[in-house]
Design a protein around this nucleic acid. Structure first.
Lengths: 165, 165
DNA sequence: GCCAGTCCGTTGCGGCTGCAACGCATCCGC
DNA sequence: GCGGATGCGTTGCAGCCGCAACGGACTGGC
């Protein structure tokens, strides 16, 4: 990160300028977008973020286990477990034990669940579209690549640290 | 966002590919970096993320009120309030009422607090450095600009929505 | 001056989250 | 095939967060 100079330094020694610190800025940006989206999920569809993620994953892959969904994102299996039972109660998904391996349960959308998915997906895409609309197409592509690179790298850094500990 | 094609589509209709959905990816990336950093704060310095942010802000600006710190980031005033009392108990910051306006309290680092700031700041910067080291310098600059643009835009989108509601 | 409105920071509460322990099922080496 | 190791999903627990209500402090219009 360059350009550590945008903020006025009033302190004797500003060693880190928070506004220029990438992890901080990523978090701010992520929570801004997340909150705005969560608002849509909650107000119009009564969904939580984990709930939406489960539905989105099932909408995309038809049938998955809870474990797949957890591994797919960065969510704990307990989070998934609770989201799944809530969605089941709402009649949006069904689960039936895998007969080949009865430890795991296969999850799928009900027609109602798919209905919500089909209503919600365009809204989510529209939001994304509005969000990136201030970027040029080149910047959008650039961003996608950079985020992918960073995520991969962050994952391996985290793995390293976990090994050390 | 382009390139909606990296994931195999197994479902009948994959309306949203979660892996390519920007808000989702931003969140994943942000939590990866956040978790790795939180580990450093916690293990070596006994700090929480809000705690670190308060210290970083005070390290940068010397003296601020809780409200300033909250506005500065995307943190609730209750979060700040709790972080502040915890840090005070640990002897890392002091607060004294503003005599001109006794509703607010001015916060500042103690010598111990500044010591932690000075020890932690280089670690945080080193982490950031490791993180962005897979990017070219051009990409790093690009990213900084894009994140700034997106954050500003997201903020105004959120403000719009809040006005509508 | 006074009272309503606003602002700062605190706190009780409800909900969510991650962790760790658990029950149950499967797998593997003998 | 038996017993320990591993894996899937659930749940109790403790901590954290945001919300909303509050107390104390200021401000502005009358």
């Amino acid at each position: 990160m360059q350009s550590r100079s945008t903020a006025r330094k009033e302190a004797s020694q500003a060693l880190v300028v928070l506004e220029d610190f990438l992890p901080y800025r990523l978090n701010v940006l992520a929570s801004l977008t997340s909150n705005a989206l969560a608002r849509i999920y909650a107000e119009r569809f009564g969904l939580t973020i984990p709930g939406w993620r489960v539905i989105a994953t099932l909408g995309q892959y038809d049938v998955r286990t809870a474990r797949d969904i957890a591994a797919h994102g960065v969510m704990h299996k307990s989070t998934i477990s609770r989201a799944v039972s809530s969605l089941e109660q709402q009649g949006l998904i069904v689960r039936h034990p895998n007969q080949d391996d009865r430890r795991e349960e296969l999850l799928a959308l009900t027609p109602e669940g798919r209905g919500i998915y089909e209503a919600l997906a365009p809204e989510a895409l529209a939001f994304e579209e509005r969000l990136v609309s201030i970027l040029t197409r080149a910047e959008q592509d650039m961003l996608a690549g950079i985020v992918a690179k960073l995520s991969g790298h962050a994952r391996s850094l985290a793995a390293e640290e976990r090994k050390e500990a």
